[in-house]
Design a protein around this nucleic acid. Sequence first.
DNA 1: TATCAAAATACATATATAAGAGTTATAAGA
DNA 2: TCTTATAACTCTTATATATGTATTTTGATA
Lengths: 240, 240
Amino acid sequence: MPVMTGQGPLYVQVREMVVQRIISGAWQPGDLLPSEFDLAAEFGVSQGTVRKALDTLAADNLIIRHQGRGTFVTTHTPQRELFHFFHLEGQKGEKQMPATSRLTGVTNRRASRIETDRLHLPANTHVFVINRIRNLGGRPTIAERIILPARMFPELGQLAELPNELYQIYEEFFGVTIHRAVEELRAVSAERDEARALGVATGAPLLEIDRLAETVDGTPVEWRLSRCDTHAHHYLSEIV
Amino acid sequence: MPVMTGQGPLYVQVREMVVQRIISGAWQPGDLLPSEFDLAAEFGVSQGTVRKALDTLAADNLIIRHQGRGTFVTTHTPQRELFHFFHLEGQKGEKQMPATSRLTGVTNRRASRIETDRLHLPANTHVFVINRIRNLGGRPTIAERIILPARMFPELGQLAELPNELYQIYEEFFGVTIHRAVEELRAVSAERDEARALGVATGAPLLEIDRLAETVDGTPVEWRLSRCDTHAHHYLSEIV
DNA sequence: TATCAAAATACATATATAAGAGTTATAAGA
DNA sequence: TCTTATAACTCTTATATATGTATTTTGATA
């Protein structure tokens, strides 16, 4: 019988117990959770209370529930990353898988001051820096720099291939699951190198997306700076 | 006894009945709905079923529920518009009420082709066009054009003052409640007039926010094009 | 001003039925 | 006899009802 926290409504306590098991790795991405009735017995609450807890976890995308099959810890697929974490689409609303990426560099170096700030790293920490150009609709559209704490991504530089969608790789190879991201968008002027790489004029307007991605426990694990040509694409945001 | 649609789960039917009453104006923004028990009696379902329906409506911001007080149709306040529908914030995350706006024009004219397209208007329809410059942190930051169907906003041009936050005005004076908005973001170059108004160089990069705002029944009622200086501000987007 | 009652949502439990998915058993065909 | 198709069964989530308790808000009264 696991010990309930004793704080707040029962369904919130159940929720927190489940989150803890996900964070601790007891339940891995893709794992099947026990049934509602089994969890109710284990936690000493009613099935309805477990249901309410699981409903909130599903609403927050920590689990996914399938009638007749069960309840699973959310896991990354390339499709999920594209539809959930990628907001660029074509002018007619087409959201296509970026077909190709040109990797322009993967390096391991000491983190800069701003990198340690952004990723909450101790001083003198190493990071991996991934630079690449992503194509949309056949044209170079995004110049991207990704900063990852080296200690969480050991041997990243030795992977033979890095696909366009990285989040499944983070999860499978390094046990790092991205749960949430905050993006700040600005309009900036293209600098010479990226202008050349994207096929636009130096000084042309680019949409800069400054993303910090976190795991379930709130640890920032990826800083991604994308500079996007928005001639044929736009960033979509829906407010309800 | 209202007639249930007969399609799908009961709680979905209850939800649709409630939405219909909001759309039809039987329940106005700010109105207090009958209690769960009363609605259950009226619709001939259990209180738990009404609760489930109301929970989904609350999750979609159509109603707001207060323990001990009751359930209310969501209504606009300037604060809600700012926190919910306005995504520009300062570099440190400050989200302040734009203190001033300079109205540069309100005109009533025939809608252009693209305006009829965007707002689903018949040909030869009139629109109100509002142009203004909005200040953030004391500086002109947003050049904005708002297109509204004239027939839904009669006598808009005769209002003595237009505040920064318009959605409460739409609701109070014209019975038009904004429920949802879709925004497309691009990086563009500042044209001469707006550059001068915003105090930036002609050709400087601006963040263009192209917003279409809809009512509960999906009718597009506002097309808003904002061109923003992102030197001191950024657009925030959260992905969970 | 403090207290109490009424009203309403919020939480919790218990139980039953419906719907969907997967597995196993049985029947039919080659 | 082996393989394939179908039916039955089991498990699980999804829906629905009923009931009780807890918490919050508001208004009335002393």
